[in-house]
Write a protein that binds this DNA or RNA. Structure first.
Length: 481
RNA sequence: GCUUCUUUAGCUCAGCUGGUUAGAGCGGCGGACUGUUAAUCCGUAGGUCCUUGGUUCGAGCCCAAGAAGGAGCGCCA
């Protein structure tokens, strides 16, 4: 008999039909009721076994997370918790899970504990919900851009330019440690390495993305990205997935519109396609926060937050306005900020959190940051009366909980301005000769941004630590699994 | 990288001011019960108190070093 997925059984409810299901045991109650789970849906199928008809040796092995195959008749349920249930004729053990040795248990386990059991944690309610939603969001990324006529561009994972300026890089080499050939100066001679030059894992596909945008018009990338920063926080990974649209003829305002529309599309997609998973995560979060003091609790539940973000405009302010708001804020006047608020210094996490979580209570897009601490490729703004210094057309989309979800800018398309900035910021123009030629030949205004995919998954699932929204997290000191 | 907290049974934790035999709930195992929904009830077995060194008559508890993990900060997405 052909196997049917539990999601189909629950959806189609083929009452009185003989069916076969396979899956893992979530619970076995009263020696009679099995909650069976196969990953196709958040929900379990209740299997009812007549313990007098089944061998006792078999019943003993229907343990938590054991894998079984059940054939029987689907009937309307007599119990209250579900509409249908499967009366088992035959139960076959596919893979036992001896509870005396198996490390997971049918009880609350901490995220830290489960992180060390990454090969099993996807079997839990929480993680299966997270990874179904993660899949949905990834799919929605492609659907969003495809529907709008964007082309998916595959930018390289191994890059020869070290000028992307987004952070520390992982070296890629075929040299044996301590056996690398040296040049006359006693330095490692990368001319003899595999690619004939020093290479690294990419920290951003943006520069190559611009090549695509200035030929195909609208492109996006969606791939793994690597940062060798020694960052130990709940919002950073050494290996993460980034989505980077790049659009010709877009300015910073078009860019902000795209970012806002994109965020809302993704959240809407999850709300529409994964209501059971989100409802579970919503309840999980409420339970988790039940015992927290008031000021540590979220203002809204997960579901409420997602619906609120989708149904309201993001706040849009300039950096200069942000500084003004912060300097007139209560925490500033009471000296509660750890870092100074002055025009010309970057906004710190505490300042961003104040703007998003206290002042506006919604996502905020901050633009027109001082040029001094932003990347060389961001477009220099015209001087403005009320602004004390040079600014660039950069934007950050700030979300509650996860902070900077998106960072982007209108790119500098004017060759002379770009070269001047590179020299000022110590980026060698000769290494990015091709990037400069994009301005020299058929250049165009263009803009784009990068979204940290895991941060979006974090926001939609309400997970507190980014390591719990990627299957196999890579962080300083940890590359297990 | 910096600050700070944690590490005690399979899991989540309690363990007073340093003092006899280190506890609870859940889970496991044995039994009872049988339309359950975190099932319930009775019984029972589980410990390198993270590691090493030190102080002390005596250390789970104090000190030092190390390890692992969390939170916050910086860097960013």
């Amino acid at each position: 008999m052909r196997r049917i997925e539990i999601e189909k059984v629950l959806q189609q409810q083929p009452i009185d039909e003989e069916i076969t299901v396979m899956g893992w045991v979530r619970a076995f109650r009263s020696n009679r009721f099995i909650a069976l789970y196969d990953g196709s849906s958040f929900n379990t199928l209740q299997v009812v076994v007549d313990f007098e008809q089944q061998p006792e040796a078999l019943l003993k092995k229907i343990n938590f997370h054991a894998c079984i195959k059940v054939t029987g008749k689907l009937v309307a349920s007599q119990g209250a918790g579900q509409s249908v249930e499967l009366l088992a004729d035959t139960v076959e053990l596919l893979g036992e899970a001896n509870p005396e040795e198996y490390s997971l248990q049918p009880k609350k386990m901490t995220m830290e504990f489960l992180r060390e059991k990454a090969h099993f944690r996807m079997r839990t309610n929480t993680f299966s919900a997270v990874f179904r939603i993660r899949h949905g969001l990834a799919f929605a990324v492609h659907q969003f851009f495809n529907d709008k006529g964007y082309y998916y561009l595959h930018t390289p994972i191994i890059t020869g330019s070290d000028a992307e300026g987004a952070g520390e890089m992982f070296r890629v080499t075929t040299f044996e440690p301590n056996k690398a050939p040296l040049n006359d100066k006693g330095e490692v001679d990368f001319k003899k390495d595999f690619f004939g030059k020093a290479t690294n894992l990419t920290v951003s596909g943006q520069l190559q993305g611009e090549i695509g945008a200035l030929a195909l018009g609208k492109i996006y990338t969606f791939g793994p990205t690597f940062r060798a920063e020694n960052s130990n926080t709940s919002r950073h990974l050494a290996e993460f997935w980034m989505i980077e649209p790049e659009v010709a003829f877009y300015d910073i305002y078009d860019n902000m519109d795209l970012a806002e529309e994109f965020c809302k599309y993704l959240i809407n997609y999850a709300l529409k396609h994964y209501p059971d998973d989100i409802a579970f995560l919503d309840a999980r979060l409420k339970e988790e926060e039940k015992n927290l003091p008031k000021d540590k609790k979220r203002l809204m539940g997960l579901l409420e937050t997602l619906e609120f973000v989708v149904n309201n405009d993001f706040e849009r302010i300039t950096y200069t306005q942000a500084v003004h708001i912060l300097r007139n804020s209560k925490p500033y006047k009471k000296g509660q900020f750890e870092f100074p608020v002055e025009w010309g210094t970057d906004l710190q996490a505490e300042h961003e959190r104040f703007l998003v979580e206290k002042h506006f209570k919604k996502p905020v897009i901050v633009r027109d940051y001082p040029a001094a601490f932003k990347a060389f490729y961001m477009r220099l703004n015209e001087k403005s009366e009320n602004v004390p210094g040079e600014t660039v057309a950069a934007m950050d989309v700030l979300f509650p909980g996860v902070g900077e979800l998106i960072g982007g800018s209108q790119r500098e398309e004017r060759l002379e301005v770009l070269v001047a900035k590179m020299e000022k910021m110590g980026v060698h123009p000769e290494e990015l000769w091709w990037y400069l030629e994009l301005r020299k030949f058929g250049g165009a205004p263009h803009a784009g941004f990068g979204m940290g995919f895991e941060r979006m998954v974090q926001f939609v699932t309400g997970m507190g630590n980014i390591r719990d929204v990627i299957a196999f997290p890579r962080t300083p000191g940890n590359a297990e699994f």
